[in-house]
Amino acid sequence: MGQILTAGTRAPEFTLRVTPDQDLSLSDLRGSPIILAFYPADWSPVCGDQMTLYNEIRPEFQKHGAEILGISVDGVWCHQAFARHNRIHFPLLADFEPKGGVAKRYGAYREGDGVCERALFILDRAGVIAWAYLSPIAVNPGADGILDALENLSNRGEKQ
């Protein structure tokens, strides 16, 4: 298991497919706190629960002005079917070609398995990693850590 990028590091810029005909760049969201949720795979039980949970909690993230992005190595069509099935309303990015290219830059790729780690990053409004967490692959990390980190960001005076 590698080392994920740590707090204080500038978040590497990327552009990934988010729908079959749309790209999303990290810089498009600059100015808002961003939650990057790397996860191993669409459809696996734990991921489903984790993304479903974030879907429900999204209004709380938005109270902090934050947007959440899910990232896995699944392709856009897979993401589309997964999002429809679970009524997921936030973007799922396809780190598909080159496979895991973005995950590798965040230290969140599992070489042997060919999937993303289950890793969470919170970026502040300037695009610097404010909080990073690597979860055991089989454990849904929930959202308590995310909400605590977003609160810390807000308290740090990010509101101005």
Partner: peptide, 11 residues
């Protein structure tokens, strides 16, 4: 629900 989320409930 939110109290649960803050307590780490994940399912």
């Amino acid at each position: 629900f939110i109290g649960g989320v803050r307590s780490g409930v994940n399912g």
